[in-house]
Amino acid sequence: MLVLVCIVAFPTFFLFYASLHEWVLFKRGMPFIGFENFARVLTSSEFLQSLKVSVIYTFSTTSLTFILGLGLALILNKELKGRGIMRTLIALPLVIPPVVAGFAWKFALNREVGVIGAYMLPAVGFMRSLLADPSLALGSIIMADVWSKTSLMFLILLAGLQVVSPDLYEAARIDGASSWQLFSHVTFPLIKPAVIIALIIRFIDAFNVFDTIFVMTSGGPGTATQTFPLLGWKIGFLYFNLGEAAALAIIMLVMTIGVGIFLIRRIT
């Protein structure tokens, strides 16, 4: 139990400690510098750029995976032939390691040698590079994330739908409810806990995605796809500034908790 508590709590305390000190690996010593790390992170131009990219990325992937996941869960909760196998297939991308998913998309979308980017798309007249064009790269990494993570939403929501007793539908149908009314008055209220959890989990997850983006674009071109985790990785493990990296991690943590509370309040 002690170990468990330590694993959960210690890193957070440590982060606070590190964020208040100048801790750069190539400098000796670790002096206390107050909130200077925070000030530096918040005022850098990379921070604003990453904030923009992170917000777009997190919002798009969370909502897209939610809509797709909910839609698929609703459909495959019905008595359709072959739903077992379809559910299984939809769950599969969750098993592909993110690094492999990243390389698979990178190789497939590659404009020079990729089966999609160099073969299928040029055949229909689309000649731009999906991974290196500043206006398309973000869309490409969002698509890869939707591919990997819709499964997660699907599974959580499908589990949630198991609570809804078919008898309730029957009762509502007898009262003459339409499909939409059925969903908004019967189904949705019942699966609301699952929806909140799904949204929050997915939000935290999307906010922290690193591997697929790093593999596909390295955050580029330029900084067009550089989300917070990529920025943090650079600050911490390329610039070896563990103090500033800790400050950014805490800023992200505060954002995560803020959005989480907002979601919980809003929906309940």
């Binding site: 959960v8 922290n208 493990f237 950014l248 992200m252 908790i257």
Partner: peptide, 12 residues
């Protein structure tokens, strides 16, 4: 528990 536990990897 989750939000604390899922702090960004580069930080923890």
């Amino acid at each position: 528990i989750l939000s604390i536990r899922m702090a960004p990897a580069f930080g923890i």
